[in-house]
Design a protein around this nucleic acid. Sequence first.
DNA 1: TATATGACGGACG
DNA 2: GCGTCCGCCATAT
Length: 105
Amino acid sequence: VTDATAAARRDRRILDVVRALHPGEVTTYGDVADVAGSPGRARLVGHLLATGADVPWWRVVDAAGRLRAVDAADQAARLRAEGVVVVDGRVRDAPLGRFRVRSDS
DNA sequence: TATATGACGGACG
DNA sequence: GCGTCCGCCATAT
């Protein structure tokens, strides 16, 4: 296969993982990359979500639980609408289904 | 072709 | 817990 198709397949795989997130479920860029089979490529996940993919992008935060979206306020609002506790631009809760935000206190 | 810049993350102090 | 540094990958200039 060509590099282009391989990359396209990889990107699609990442987007599929994000699409699989249920309401109230929050995960990290790194975990998405990992589950999608591209460990270490957290930055790539962020880039994909930034390109306006049709996926629940607001359910993805960074490893520290911080909301990195351009419009963090919007992301916070969407998360709260699903019952996720966001404090000072950060996810304080670890509700989540299969994917977990590593945030312990 | 080279450099800079992000929706990142881990290691370190 | 925070700031800095470096590695990571794709785009933009």
